[in-house]
């Protein structure tokens, strides 16, 4: 009953404060951007070559694989930042505004409060990513007659897990920090660390960022070898971030 009320409040808050709308709009924008960029880039380069004497571009015709590649780039570079901006004030914002003691002075466990907050954010992320996927897939099918929808869905599930890891790390930062700005800085640092580890030769294979290359292969229908270690590590990071947040929050002085 209490947890349900907390989750309902989170979703209602995202709706009323337009946060959910903005999140979905940005995700849809990036979803549409992938096929459009893939379609227009060769034309743009040809036009550039035509207006610049002596320059010749030889490009293969654009395909659904280009859409997947652009889509994965967006998921790696831009959308985690959007997730970070939306989630960094989840707990720290309530601390700053003073709304948190009002809720926690009620017969509500701190675990239920945190769980509802994270679930609310995760549901919003799932909705936004779903809309992003549908818009990208629809446009891509329209322009390129591909990719194969089954692989595209699997790709999005893996990408969704990566974004969920970013969300969990941001959530941890928001719980640890006393202010939203500090939470943002800390979350950005954790995400940067994730990217740095992902770029290291051997460690990278076990990093959550390796999920994205696997996702990309699934998207173009060439799954190759599964990044199962990265999948396990991602789930472990997700769980560790949430447990860490709870362990800190249950003893936090308000």
């Amino acid at each position: 009953m209490r947890t349900k009320a907390l989750i309902r409040k989170e979703l209602l808050e995202q709706w009323r404060t337009r946060r959910l709308w903005v999140l979905c709009a940005v995700f849809i924008f990036f979803g549409l951007l992938a096929p459009i960029t893939a379609r227009l880039t060769p034309d743009l380069l040809r036009w550039l070559a035509a207006t610049t004497p002596g320059v010749v571009f030889q490009l293969p015709p654009p395909s659904a694989a280009d859409v997947v590649s652009q889509y994965i780039k967006n998921l790696t570079q831009s959308l985690p930042l959007v997730v970070l901006l939306v989630a960094m004030g989840a707990v720290s914002g309530e601390k700053e505004r003073g709304t948190l003691p009002m809720v926690l002075a009620k017969p509500v466990s701190r675990g239920a409060f945190l769980g509802a907050k994270f679930l609310g954010l995760a549901l919003a992320l799932a909705l936004a990513l779903g809309l992003c996927m549908v818009s990208a897939c629809y446009y891509s099918l329209l322009l390129f007659n591909g990719p194969e929808p089954g692989g595209f869905v699997l790709m999005n599930l893996l990408a969704g897990l990566y974004l969920l890891v970013v969300l969990a790390l941001t959530f941890l930062a928001s719980t640890l920090a006393a202010s939203t700005v500090m939470a943002g800085v800390l979350a950005f640092g954790l995400w940067a660390l994730l990217l740095i580890l992902g770029a290291l030769p051997r460690v990278g294979r076990a990093s959550p960022t390796a999920l994205l290359s696997w996702a990309g292969r699934l998207g173009i229908g060439r799954p190759g070898e599964g990044e199962w270690l990265a999948l396990g590590v991602s789930l472990a990071v997700l769980a560790a971030a949430l447990i860490g947040a709870w362990l800190h929050f249950r003893r936090q002085e308000l």
């Binding site: 409040k9 808050e13 009323r16 404060t17 505004r97 003073g98 709304t99 003691p101 009002m102 002075a105």
Partner: peptide
């Protein structure tokens, strides 16, 4: 409990 400066969700 009523804190010294009660804070609410302004959108409610």
């Amino acid at each position: 409990y009523l804190p010294e400066e009660p804070a609410f969700y302004g959108w409610m």
